[in-house]
Design a protein around this nucleic acid. Structure first.
Lengths: 196, 196
DNA sequence: GTGCTATTATACCGATCTGTATAGTTCTTG
DNA sequence: CAAGAACTATACAGATCGGTATAATAGCAC
C-alpha cells in the first residue's frame, strides 16, 4: 500500500478541476477579487459540488496553496536533479527555475506572498500555509549550501532567500524578469566572500 | 505664493481624515476587504463627501498610496540626515529605519507590495504608484552608495534593494523583525566584496 | 436491485459591494 | 446679505458576496 504523505484528502477529478480553476483565477486576479461563482462558472460545476469538497472559500484557498506548494516543490526538485551532481550547478539551476518562471507570460508575482497580503492575520491557516512554503524554500537553499560546503549554510540560506523573495517581488513590480541576474551575482559574491 | 510640488490636490481636513482612515484600514485588512462604507463609518463622514473628493475607490487607493509614499520618503530622509555625514552611518540609519518599522506592533508588510498583489494589472494607476515608490527606494540607495564610493552604485543599489524587499516580505511572513540583521550583514559583505 | 455517494439545478438568504440621486444644511467668502 | 462650495442624511440602485436548502439525478459498490 502506498501512503500519500502530504495530501490529506483523496484526489477526485471534479475536486482537481475545482482546484486548478480556482488556482488560475486566484493567481490572475487575486483572492478577494475572485468569487466562488466565477470559479464555478469557469469550471462548469455546481455550487454544491464546491461545498461538498470544501467547507468554505477559505478552505479552498488553503487547499489551492498547498497544492501549488507541492507542485512547485516537485518542479524545483526535478530541475535541480536534472542539473547533475555539481553543487554549484544545482544552485544555478535553482536560480534558472526562477528566471523561467519570471519569463512566463502569465507570471503575476508570488501567489503565497499575495495570499498573506490579503489575509494578514498571522494565526489564519492561510498564513500558516504560506509560512510552510517559504520555510521549504529556505530549507532547499540550505541543503544546497551544505553541499557547497559554505561555512554557515543556515545564515547564508536566509540571505539568499531574501534576494530571491526580493527578486520575485521586483520582477512583478517592475515587470523585469532579468532581475534574476542581480540575484545570481549577489549570491555568488556572498558565497565567495564567506568561503575564504 | 507657495507651490506644493508633489501634491496635485489641495489638502483639506475632511480629505485628510478620509485618507488617514482609509490608509489605516487598507493597511490592516487589505484593499478589497475594506469597503468604503467601513471607511466612512470609521471616519464619521457621509458617503457623498468621499465622492466629492475622489471619483472612485480606486482613486482613493491611489491617493492613499501616494500620500504614504510621501510620508515614508520624508521619514527616511529625516532618519538619514539625523545620522550625520558619514555615508556608512547613513546607510545603517536607512536599515535601522526598517528595523523600527518591522518592530511596530501594527506592522503588516508593505502596503505597496500588497497593493500590486491585489491589483496585478501593470497598466493600472495603482501599479504605477507602486512602481514609482519602489524606484524612489532604489534611488535613495544609489545616492548613498555613490557617497560610499562603491564601484557600480546602480548595480549595488538594485542588489541591496532586493535584500530589503525580501526582508519586508519575510518579516511579515515569518513574523520576524530581526531579519534586518541578515540584510545588514549581507549588504556590507557585498559592499566590501565590490570595493576591493 | 439497493443503497450510498457524488453531482446537478434552482431557488433563496441576508449581507455587502460601489456608486448615484436628491434634498437639505452648514460654512466661508465676496 | 448673497452666492457658492463643502458637507450631511437618507434612500436607492443593481450587482455580487459567501453560504444554505431542497429535490432530483447519475454512477458505482455490495
Amino acid at each position: 500500500m502506498a501512503y500519500t504523505l502530504t495530501q490529506t484528502t483523496a484526489s477526485t477529478p471534479k475536486r482537481d478541476l475545482l482546484l486548478d480553476t480556482a488556482a488560475d483565477l486566484f493567481y490572475r486576479d487575486g483572492y478577494h477579487a475572485v468569487g466562488i461563482d466565477k470559479i464555478l462558472a469557469e469550471a462548469g460545476l455546481a455550487k454544491m459540488t464546491l461545498y461538498h469538497h470544501f467547507a468554505s472559500k477559505d478552505e479552498l484557498i488553503v487547499a489551492v496553496l498547498e497544492r501549488r506548494g507541492r507542485a512547485i516543490g516537485a518542479e524545483i526538485a526535478a530541475a535541480i536533479e536534472a542539473a547533475g551532481s555539481s553543487p554549484r550547478r544545482r544552485l544555478l539551476a535553482f536560480f534558472d527555475w526562477h528566471e523561467h518562471w519570471f519569463d512566463r507570460k502569465d507570471f503575476n508575482g508570488c501567489a503565497f506572498i499575495r495570499a498573506i497580503g490579503e489575509y494578514p492575520d498571522v494565526k489564519s491557516p492561510i498564513h500558516q500555509a504560506v509560512t510552510k512554503q517559504k520555510q521549504a524554500a529556505r530549507d532547499r537553499l540550505e541543503t544546497m549550501l551544505v553541499a557547497m560546503e559554505v561555512p554557515d549554510p543556515k545564515a547564508m540560506a536566509i540571505q539568499l532567500h531574501l534576494l530571491l523573495e526580493g527578486a520575485i517581488v521586483s520582477a512583478h513590480t517592475f515587470g523585469d524578469p532579468k532581475i534574476i541576474k542581480s540575484v545570481r551575482e549577489a549570491a555568488f559574491a556572498l558565497i565567495k566572500s564567506a568561503s575564504k
